[in-house]
Design a protein around this nucleic acid. Structure first.
Lengths: 169, 169
DNA sequence: ATCATGTGATTATTTATCATAACTAATTAT
DNA sequence: ATAATTAGTTATGATAAATAATCACATGAT
């Protein structure tokens, strides 16, 4: 199974003292200093957590976040060329090729040479691809629900808005 | 120079049609569909953007985000053991070793065997390490300023708060 | 028509990140 | 003592991302 992101627990352990550490001065609270206020640090930790949740939620399908995003874009824009998908998702063309080939090998997507420009490949989902995408979106919905439960509906929209602003830093 | 994250432009190109694409139906607006509402997707794009900004801001020092976080934690908690730093930052011990050795090789940090438990290494910054950290924090401050300018002061605190909630998903 | 140039896709290569497993040395517990 | 843990290291594999080079095709100018 292709496996994008491990399900590693996000919190370290060392939550309980452990026999060997019992003697040392309470290491339970490490001072993060200014780090806790770094947007980059918080982004990284949050993304690790959410991606771990993604891997868990979509385990039975085995899609990576990147693959799901490609499937969604192709489904909404059938016939799109590879470069356009790359540009839309911020993926390097060179890295896109093997990703797409994996989707093709799994029977989810097809490339057909564009008659108007035979250098280009127009991308489409197979009907199987549409089925898998629908199931994946349903599973993913559960993850988003969990997130909404965690942030509140207002918090969720706020977060999306703030993150979108960051993209154009 | 150790280089964690490339300075790749976050926006794809294809902003102007380009001669070859002039004929096709306007590909300028790709429909992202539900993707735009995925927290995971927004997180990934935002983190790419912020990390690119990080790499740019700290280029002259050449610290990675991970390395800076380790320096900060050691500075605030001198004498801390490796495992404690790992647990605090969510880094695997196995991956921490080479990271720390790099800091040591650059003369920023030192490991000294803990007499009380000779399996453990207590970590400290060298004075040079403290100098570099101070410079790095100053440079990083500029990045945070840019982010604040982008989000507003209130937006920034909101974002941190929301991201922290996500960590415990 | 041809030729220089640019573009789409691919391949190969490199680097960084993250995870797992196995190993050593030291410590603690029975 | 012996067994079980723990800290750190090493080795390894998988993934992601970036760069450079290559090939096929398309375009624009001569």
């Amino acid at each position: 199974m292709r496996n994008p992101l491990s399900a590693r627990a996000v919190r370290g352990k060392a939550d309980q003292p452990s026999a060997g550490a019992a003697r040392r001065a309470v290491p339970t609270a490490v001072d993060l200093g200014p780090l806790g206020g770094f947007i980059g640090y918080r982004l990284r930790r949050a993304q690790l957590s959410v991606f771990a949740g993604f891997e868990l939620a979509l385990r039975e399908i085995g899609l990576t976040p990147g693959e799901l995003s490609v499937l969604v874009v192709i489904a909404r824009n059938p016939g799109l060329r590879q470069s356009d998908v790359c540009a839309a998702l911020g993926i390097q063309r060179a890295n896109f090729t093997p990703l797409l080939h994996a989707l093709e090998a799994d029977g989810l997507a097809i490339r057909e040479v564009l008659p108007a420009d035979r250098r280009s490949n127009a991308l489409r989902l197979t009907s199987h691809g549409r089925d898998v995408l629908a199931r994946a979106l349903a599973l993913h919905e559960r993850l988003e629900k969990r997130i909404t439960a965690c942030l509140g509906e207002a918090g969720r929209t706020q977060l999306i808005d703030l993150l979108r602003k960051l993209e154009t830093l």
